[in-house]
Design a protein around this nucleic acid. Sequence first.
DNA 1: CCTCTTTCGTTGTAAAAACAACATACTTGT
DNA 2: ACAAGTATGTTGTTTTTACAACGAAAGAGG
Lengths: 220, 220
Amino acid sequence: MDSFIPVLKHTQLFRGLGEGEILALLKCLDAKLRSYGKGEYIFHKGQFVRDIMVLAEGKLHIQKDDYWGNSNIIQTIAPGEMFGEAYAAPNSGAMLNNVIAVEESTVIFLDAKGIFTTCSSACAFHSLVVQNLFFALSEKNRRLVQKLGHMSQRSTREKLMSYLSEESSRQNASTFVIPFNRQQLADFLSVDRSAMSNELRKMREDGLITYEKSRFTLIL
Amino acid sequence: MDSFIPVLKHTQLFRGLGEGEILALLKCLDAKLRSYGKGEYIFHKGQFVRDIMVLAEGKLHIQKDDYWGNSNIIQTIAPGEMFGEAYAAPNSGAMLNNVIAVEESTVIFLDAKGIFTTCSSACAFHSLVVQNLFFALSEKNRRLVQKLGHMSQRSTREKLMSYLSEESSRQNASTFVIPFNRQQLADFLSVDRSAMSNELRKMREDGLITYEKSRFTLIL
DNA sequence: CCTCTTTCGTTGTAAAAACAACATACTTGT
DNA sequence: ACAAGTATGTTGTTTTTACAACGAAAGAGG
């Protein structure tokens, strides 16, 4: 566990805290580690969760899968990122999505109720953590709205342009790498993979973009 | 302003606080009132906001409008509900959507930075407000994910079923009234109104639903 | 009560997406 | 290096959606 302190130090949740404070907090929050293999489920839809999780290493997808096998990737989680905060509040109900490891991953579990109750060991930094948590959730919120912005586009091409534009401005470069393969990008945008592949080709023919694998360049 | 205290008492933000405490907080947070006519904009996309707003009366839509005149209703706001919390954090960037009054409405503005800094008048309940804020944001988060669930459905029929099912279970009744007219529902689900109307008829013919205006009944 | 405006349903057509099927390229493990 | 499995691109067909146009119904205001 201690080996992940350097990672934790740079997470949104523990921003502004020293190593000693983090160590104390981990105790307060009854931190637990668990590892997952590629393709393994961290959570199934319908499960009840009262922990807040931080990804220590690897890569996760939060996704909604339907009866017919269609997936929709709600969000990707990179090391240092948090997930499940939206379920930390009491009366949050069951989880609405699946959480899956897309690579070998290690997850840190923190007891959520410890965050809202002042702990015995007099952690004065609790309020800072709550504030950090709030900021993180607020950022996630804005990201969800961004994604809704892509999904609300009517055509596949518009969805792609919306997503690629955002990614370009987020990475502040006209050439950038996206964290998806084709199937995953299609799942993320909720479109058919082959149709999307086709549309990408047309967009390239129309001189809007060039690409190779997951590296895209927006033209003009 | 004082006339809205009873409303505020039952908001998520001020849950658990007495009237006196709310009154003190309103002072702390430099509360301001403003009224809007039907169709008037509360915020335009691109604006910077550092306030948290509570709707005192009326009805609002948070929506994304594109260049070609398509709207996408991200969320509807009812009296007592809060909006803009996702922009309360510093470095939140500009607002991504428009906020529009769909009826005559009154909005309360609260200075966000007052919430995170301890105030001079020693409001001990600040931490409770922060916690309330967190819970509210977390619920909004889950609602956004729900909406993403509808939008990720491939066909109009599936989108409708997804939305109507949720609304039915949320209102805990097989017959229920939705807060949209046809155009608004179409905007909410990001589909064409006439095509949606058509699909609704087919669904009725197929014995899945009945409806009249905004009152729907799920069959079986 | 009448007129003007908005909402809702209906239809036909053109465009787009889903789907299925397959070829090719690329990975991974052995 | 090989084989098996996975990812990507391509194409044709079927289904669905967007769009446009219009008439009927409902509502608002004088």
